[in-house]
Design a protein around this nucleic acid. Structure first.
Lengths: 334, 334
DNA sequence: TCCCTGCGGGAAAGGGCTTTCTTTGCGGTA
DNA sequence: TACCGCAAAGAAAGCCCTTTCCCGCAGGGA
């Protein structure tokens, strides 16, 4: 592996000069030397050692992102927004998948801190777990104490800059929608109960039903993983136990797609026999059949805003931006 | 930001000892000192500077991955396979999205090389572009010359270890399938013509049609981006120009989903009036309506194999593993 | 008593780069 | 001719860690 001094030696200059040429330093270098350096670089196929560079200039420039799983469309969209703003500002992103493992989230905070990132952005739900929340907050605070910036998307525990999708109102909206459509026997296909996203959405839904004089007993809720197969399994269990249901509220679109698949396999007509709704409005929601009635969250914008917050030091007071949810009416609820 | 010497000073030991404790070195350290060091680490919230570590131990351990877009399910699946093997071997992955921009691919090769990765894996299609191919090969070869390992997924230009999905046979299979179903008026919704994936799949398809005495004239092929919207647009153009078609072959599943959406919007019944097929068998293919008849590629396995090749030095001769495609019959073709 | 061995700890040499500070050499003024 | 000032190049001091090499000391055998 060729080093900078190899280049310098070959060009007959000092490493300092070579460095200046390669990095386009503001310090002027005569055309002759500049050319010799560039030739040496090409001949040796020299590529600077990124670690050495990053060590030498104590320039924090990259930004770390912790999500549950980038290949999940929900986070893919958020990441797109993050990416856009980051690229505009010439910043590199380090993306880490926690796969919803709190332990791994803690590890990644340390990893990113060790990599000297300028900011850490945590996307995804918080956990109902005091122990973990305390630990995470400690680590984030320690990071901030050394000049790092933190922004979170949709978790309320950390007291700092935050972008919050309005999950509660979203739940309320979809509940209101179903009541307006005349449903009273409503079941819920829910994500894990430890996630704050889940409980927020449930709380909104519950409030809407209460306003219409309906209740949501615990036995009409099934908890499972926040993915397609979880949705299918929860729907199956729910229908077996509660055959009278006329509507199934899935707490995200992936689960809703699982619900649709299960209902199709049992030849239950949607929405004629049972209505199904989702949450998030991922791109695929319009392509399943029937097209999914769901709650839209401005995912890309959430990402963009979070990155903007993270990169702008701010005045000191923590900022919170709440982004509104809205119902998207398609064909799966009637 | 606390440094190792801060820790050492606070614990009253030398940096060497502190380092040994923190990294669990094989060299023994008395219980007393070990404890003092650990206490200092906790008190100072010390996190080692990753760049300094990576520089000091000239240990290449991370692996770089260049894909078109991880949030595209095709690459998401491949990445899952890569990830699995990498994790098993305790390796970190650096994932880079080229967004199908050749320029960016070249940049990322340099970036990864600069980051001292142990191996680079390139997934996704090659380009029909001699200039670019030559440049890329030069960069990869230079990287290999310094001890780096390279494995590619599905591109034939680089002479090294490779995992190859059998795109040509896949195209042949789907063509044969449609002929068997009695179709003779077949149109193609294709990805960009510069991608080798596209031309391989087309070639197989063409061969199958030829075997059944049918041809595939150029005006029955529409080229567009390899995504949903590209698929919808190409299908619209194709149907307008060739109203007699009874089958549309999309060259990947995303495009097929776009085709389905467009046909639905025009109230064309699938498969009664027009059959549609996809390619790749992404997870969502079974959840659209009608469920997609497509060609399955073992995406996760492709990733796993590629990582295995990359991490195993091999005997010297380049290895190529071809992974077979198979038809998955669902409801969109009849 | 002396020497050797072995173990725990520290000093110091990198690892490859950036950047400040210093030096050198030149043209121009008094 | 002597001196000043400036521009361009080089020397060297870090950046923060790991790891080799060396040293001192205690214990055991001769």
């Amino acid at each position: 592996m060729a080093t900078l001094s190899d280049v310098a030696r070959r060009a007959g200059v000092s490493p300092a000069t070579a460095s200046r040429v390669i990095n386009g330093s503001s310090k002027p270098v005569t055309e002759d030397l500049r050319e010799r350096v560039l030739r040496a670089v090409a001949e040796l196929q020299y590529v600077p050692n990124a670690h050495a560079q990053l060590l030498a200039r104590s320039h924090r420039t990259a930004v770390g992102v912790i999500v549950h799983d980038v290949s999940d469309p929900y986070f893919a969209e958020i990441t797109r927004g993050l990416q856009r703003v980051a690229t505009d500002q010439g910043r590199l992103l380090m993306i880490c998948n926690s796969y919803r493992d709190p332990e791994r989230e803690l590890e990644y905070v340390e990893l990113l801190r060790g990599h000297q990132v300028a900011a850490i952005i945590m996307a995804g739900s918080g956990y109902h777990d005091e122990e973990f929340t305390k630990l995470l907050n400690e680590k984030l605070t320690a990071y901030e104490a050394t000049g790092g910036r933190v922004a979170v998307i949709g978790r309320h525990e950390h007291s700092g800059d935050a972008v919050m999708p309005d999950n509660r109102t979203g739940g309320w909206l979809i509940g209101t929608e179903l009541c307006a459509l005349g449903h009273s026997e409503i079941g819920v296909v829910s994500g894990p109960a430890v996630l704050t996203t889940t409980t927020d959405r449930l709380a909104g839904l519950r409030a809407a039903l209460a306003e219409h004089g309906r209740s949501l007993p615990e036995h009409r809720i099934r908890y499972a993983e926040f993915d397609r197969d979880g949705g299918a399994a929860a729907t199956a269990a729910l229908l077996d136990a509660e055959p009278a249901l006329t509507a199934v509220v899935a707490l995200n679109d992936s689960m809703a797609i699982g619900a649709l698949a299960l209902l199709r396999s049992r030849s239950v007509a949607v929405p004629q026999q049972v209505s199904v709704t989702g949450f998030d409005d991922m791109p695929i929601a319009r392509d399943v059949t029937p097209a999914l009635t769901t709650v839209r969250l401005p995912l890309v914008e959430m990402g963009a805003r979070a990155m903007a917050l993270a990169l702008d030091p701010g005045a000191g007071a923590p900022r919170t931006e709440v982004l509104a949810a809205e119902v998207v009416r398609r064909d799966s609820a009637g």
